[in-house]
Amino acid sequence: MLRLLQLELAKIKTYKTFWILTGIYLLFLVGITSSGMEALRWLAVNGANLGEYDVQKIPLYHFPDIWQNLTWVAQKFKLLPGIYIIISVTNEFTYKTIRQHVIDGLSRADFIGAKVLFIFLISLASTLVVLALGLILGNLYTPSSSPELMVTHIEFVPAYWLATFNYLLLALALAFIIKRAGLAIVILLIYPALEWMIKIPLPYNLEYLANYLPYASLSDLIQFPFSKYAMMAIQETVLPHQWGINLAYIPVLIGLSYATIARKNLS
């Protein structure tokens, strides 16, 4: 397993596209998620105060609110690693390195395995960045923090990992199915809309089924949190069925990628 991961890492060592995308991703991940208070100040200056309510008093970064707030914003940037995953697969078809790898003694399952391990590593790294950000910002802004308060609703952090992991597995499957970088990236971009369009021909009483499609499921893990500051009810925690369906999608998405090359000729 370590060998397969080393194999993927050896490919990116001097690959500029990867490092540029990673740089932009980190910039967004750290820069935007941690500038929430700046955004509120901007809103206040521009007269977005809700009556007597001072938006700058919204506890964006207070434990335990911070975990859902932070992870919801952070997951908006997963398109960037998604694009890289697509390039990393379509490159193998363009350069014919997938064929050469098999000739050299890699099985098709190994090839998929290496990509999945790489995706695991990226999603884990991203999660650790978000966890670190949460701990730092939470301790900076929360007036009186305690260990118990810090870990309250920290389940949004593993949920963030799962959402990121599954999204990248979805990008992987799209790359294997489409095999061309440009088209696969466009499809990934419009994919949420495609899932939404599936709803249209469904009869009204079956529309709910569309909520169980892969993108809808992973988006459901962390729902929009900020409406609570307008006194609306929001998601309290991540529920067992949300974990369940997203965990079930892991083998499905990996299997989908594998099916595109298993028992197929590689030219």
């Binding site: 060998r3 050896a10 490919k11 001097t14 350069y95 014919k96 064929r99 098999v102 050299d104 003694g105």
Partner: peptide, 30 residues
């Protein structure tokens, strides 16, 4: 296949990697 050395058609390598880095990948596979 790991015990076989094969050259089929044109040379296949990652263009942006050096010779040594490319062979490192082959060494990991084999």
């Amino acid at each position: 296949r790991k015990r076989i050395g094969a050259i089929l058609e044109t040379p296949v390598f990652y263009p942006y990697l050096t010779a040594r880095q490319n062979l490192k990948i082959v060494a990991l596979i084999k």
